[in-house]
């Protein structure tokens, strides 16, 4: 393979692995720091969407064969539909259960 292309792939994949680590760790941190399910849902969407999507992008970049690359591409396309649907179902469940959401330092009338 062309060495320039090879190194471009490697460096981009490393960058996306770094994204995976950073977003995964900070989302898990937010899962424990935030006080109620509404805001925990936001923090968890960083882990379960951004971090996993970055991982899939990195794996797509270093995929060894076309068969694998196309399967990962289709998985990513379905992930773009299934992951928002999951968080939407949970948010709707919270909404219908009538749970009030966290309002930090209420200074002005909203």
């Amino acid at each position: 393979m062309n060495p320039i292309l090879f190194w471009a792939r490697e460096v981009l994949a490393l960058l996306f692995f770094l994204f995976f680590l950073v977003f995964g760790l900070s989302g898990l941190l937010g899962l424990f720091r935030f006080p109620d399910p509404w805001s925990r849902l936001q923090a968890s969407s960083v882990t379960s969407t951004t971090s996993v999507f970055s991982l899939l992008t990195a794996l797509l970049l270093i995929a060894p064969s076309w068969a694998m690359a196309s399967r990962i591409l289709i998985i990513m396309a379905f992930f773009m539909i299934s992951s928002p649907t999951g968080s939407h179902i949970i948010a709707r469940f919270l909404w219908f259960s009538g749970l009030p959401h966290w309002m930090p330092e209420e200074k002005d009338k909203g």
Binding site: G27, L31, I75, S87
Partner: peptide, 17 residues
């Protein structure tokens, strides 16, 4: 219950990865 559902959501994403 909401917290547990949120954790399950994260688990499903991580399991896919």
């Amino acid at each position: 219950l909401g917290d547990r559902l949120v954790a399950l959501n994260v688990l499903s994403g991580l399991a896919l990865g």
